[in-house]
């Protein structure tokens, strides 16, 4: 799938190293940004705490199960931003800055991750893991469900990240702009912090196949607490893989419409 996976992975890790070096030049700023990236998780925690303090909460989900879901949703959100900043990416497409990515001997999709991700979102990933760990310490889960959940989360997150790449390119081709993409990501993350059933069939489909963040948050959370069986698990896993492939191939095709910029 990627032309020479090892070579591209090495390039990505090399770029990650220099992204971090560049980011940590200003240590205070780096610290502030990492703290800011945890606020999404904090907001989810407060929201769930308010709901469960004044009502019976959401049916079929205990307080700690909801916290686990919030943790997962925010981990996905932070991973997305860690890998690709859609606004920055589209801006680079528009002003020709993406030229530099195309002059490197690597898969252009990997070049996107190498150039347009934001390292400070590690704060959000850590806070999400922290909240998840806290929630799991107050609930009963078994090893098999944890492993299955991790698998679903991994493949789901890959599908969502690739979706973001694709939608950024679509936005560039159609509108030459992508200012709203960050919003869409934030809104769908916000939505994926809650059981998808509350959004009805349309909402569930949207967050499973339309903007597939549910694949990396809701379904892994359901798997964790055995709210779905293993047949469902396999189906979601296959869906994640299929969507990943579709988004990847579509992104490569969309790159043909890049017209550079400037003189």
């Amino acid at each position: 799938m990627f032309e020479d996976v090892t070579k591209n992975l090495r390039f990505f890790l090399l770029s990650l190293k220099y992204n971090w070096l560049s980011f940590l030049v200003y240590r205070t700023q780096a610290f502030v940004w990492m703290v800011v990236s945890t606020f999404s998780t904090l907001s989810g925690l407060i929201s769930i705490s308010v709901i469960y303090s004044i009502s019976g909460g959401l049916p079929g989900w205990s307080y700690f199960q909801m916290l686990a879901l919030v943790g997962m949703a925010n981990m996905v959100y932070s991973i997305i931003n860690f890998m690709i900043g859609p606004q920055t990416f589209v801006r680079a497409l528009r002003n020709g800055g993406f030229d530099q990515a195309l002059t490197k001997p690597y898969d252009p999709i990997i070049s996107i991750f190498a150039r347009y991700g934001t390292p400070y979102n590690i704060g959000g990933i850590i806070s999400g893991i922290g909240l998840l760990a806290y929630a799991l310490s107050n609930t009963a889960v078994n090893a098999l469900s944890i492993v299955s959940s991790i698998l679903l989360f991994g493949f789901g997150a890959a599908a969502v990240v690739m979706f973001l790449v694709m939608i950024s390119l679509v936005s560039y081709v159609l509108f030459r702009s992508g200012n709203y993409l960050q919003w869409i990501t934030a809104i769908t993350t916000s939505a994926s912090q809650y059981p998808l059933a509350i959004y009805g069939l349309a909402g569930t489909l949207l967050l499973t196949v339309g903007f597939p963040i549910g694949l990396a948050s809701f379904y892994p959370a359901e798997m964790l607490f055995l709210k779905i069986n293993y047949v469902y698990f396999l189906a979601i896993l296959v869906l994640s893989v299929v969507l990943f492939i579709i988004f990847y191939k579509t992104s490569k095709w969309l790159l043909k419409f890049y017209t550079s910029g400037g003189g």
């Binding site: 019976g56 916000s190 509350i198 959004y199």
Partner: peptide, 14 residues
């Protein structure tokens, strides 16, 4: 999103 969430909360509260 918030409307749907709180609608669900209200629906299932007593």
């Amino acid at each position: 999103v918030f409307i749907l969430v709180w609608s669900a909360v209200y629906y299932f509260s007593s």
